[in-house]
């Protein structure tokens, strides 16, 4: 008898694990259905996330196989532009069996929800993810109102 919602949830959790283990026992032929591919350019640009934590914004973009020289970040007010090129690292003297990754060139621009301090932006490229930390300008930060 389950009396709490979380108990039921926990049961489903266990079932999911069981199902995924069961899946592995069968052939992998039908795995393509209902699953998405790891990385691809959507509408000509990489996928991004934007997080707002009050005094700063965080933008993360998936940019595998690109070095920091391949990427360009421009900012003006609350307008952010991200562009990059990816060249394929196809080795010479090899015969290609399968080529799914493609070379690409993209530009993506965003209107950020608030203006940011362009001098204090940090950009970090790690494991194929570009993380931008954009501190908001003073006027856009949340303020504590003291109650009299």
């Amino acid at each position: 008898m389950w009396t709490r919602v979380s108990d039921i949830d926990r049961m489903f959790n266990a079932m999911d694990l069981f199902r995924s283990n069961l899946d592995r026992m069968f052939t992998d032929d039908d795995r393509f259905f209902g699953e998405d591919f790891g990385w691809r350019v959507v509408n000509g640009a990489p996928r991004t996330n934007l997080y707002d934590s009050g005094d700063k914004l965080q933008v993360i973009a998936e940019v595998p196989g690109m070095s920091k020289e391949d990427l360009k970040v421009r900012i003006q007010g609350n307008y952010l532009e991200l562009s990059g090129t990816r060249s394929l690292d196809a080795p010479g003297g090899y015969k290609a069996h399968r080529v799914e990754r493609n070379m690409t060139e993209f530009t993506r621009s965003f209107t950020l929800p608030s203006e940011v301090n362009a001098d204090k932006i940090e950009a970090l490229l790690r494991d194929g993810l570009l993380t931008l930390v954009l501190p908001k300008i003073e006027a856009a930060r949340p303020k504590q109102i003291s109650i009299k």
């Binding site: 959790n13 393509f32 591919f37 069996h97 799914e100």
Partner: peptide, 15 residues
């Protein structure tokens, strides 16, 4: 309950 989506990484294979 956190659902982790599954994805198939794209590959290139050379020989």
């Amino acid at each position: 309950r956190q659902e982790i989506r599954r994805a198939i990484p794209l590959v290139d294979i050379y020989e």
